[in-house]
Amino acid sequence: MIEEQRASALRQIYVDDRWWFWPWGFAWLVGFGLIFLRFGPDGRVFVNLPEWLPTAVLVALVVAAGVISGVTGARAYGHLAGESAKRGAYYGWAWMVAFTSMTVILIRISDQLPADLQRLVWAAVMVGLTGALHLAGGAIWLNRQLFLLGAWISVVNVAGVLAGPGWQSLIMCLAAGGGMIVFGLVASRWHRRGRPA
């Protein structure tokens, strides 16, 4: 009877992993892809878009992904109480506080940098923060998949920074955005086959 109740509870809170990872993956794939097309390596312009458009699209898609994640989390875990609920709430607040503080810092210092380095630094800091928070989430909930995703994002971010302006956007687009889409698909299949996270 205990196992039946446990299985029933897990079915109630289960969310297909694609809802967690795909909104972010598609946001990065499209957003960073547009940045690469407009601001390629060595100032190359592959598609002559208005300068403001790629960043605006990336920000809009990231906000949409955040809303989708928030709604998904609220539907899955909103009715839970206790220590797990507190951890989830604190973790959600950690994302908001961390990104707000980094935004303020970057706004303050980015005017001191050339435009190509501004894009590189903004992307590197925000993606690095995302990787670190995924690593922390994986550690908090002992979730191997989330921890591995954080490690992947962190490694890809370093590779992008080392590659430099222009190339960084392509690496973020394909390896981080595309990687997150593949990761969501694999994680969803693992859950359907009953493998633990």
Rank of each mutant, 00 (worst) to 15 (best):
Q5R: 02
Q12C: 10
R18S: 10
W20S: 13
W20G: 11
W20M: 15
F21Q: 06
P23H: 04
F26Y: 12
A27V: 13
A27E: 00
L29D: 08
V30H: 00
G31M: 05
F36P: 00
L37A: 04
L37M: 09
D42P: 03
V45M: 06
F46Q: 01
V47N: 00
L49H: 01
W52P: 01
T55W: 11
V59Q: 04
A60H: 06
A60S: 10
L61D: 03
V63M: 05
A65G: 05
V67Q: 06
G70M: 09
V71W: 08
T72G: 08
A74Y: 12
G82Y: 07
E83W: 11
R87F: 13
A89I: 13
Y91A: 07
M96L: 08
F99R: 01
T100S: 13
S101T: 10
T103I: 04
V104M: 13
R108I: 11
R108K: 14
L113A: 13
L117V: 09
Q118S: 06
R119K: 10
A124L: 07
A124C: 05
V125M: 06
V125Q: 01
G128N: 07
G128K: 12
G131E: 00
H134V: 05
A136G: 08
G137P: 14
A139I: 12
W141Y: 12
N143K: 15
L146N: 13
A151Y: 04
I153E: 00
I153Y: 02
S154Q: 03
V156H: 02
V156M: 07
N157M: 06
G164I: 00
P165I: 01
W167Q: 01
Q168T: 03
Q168L: 07
L170H: 00
A175F: 11
A175W: 02
A176S: 09
G177H: 02
G178W: 04
G179Q: 02
M180A: 15
V182T: 15
L185N: 05
V186S: 14
V186E: 05
A187I: 14
A187M: 12
R189F: 11
R193I: 05
R195H: 13
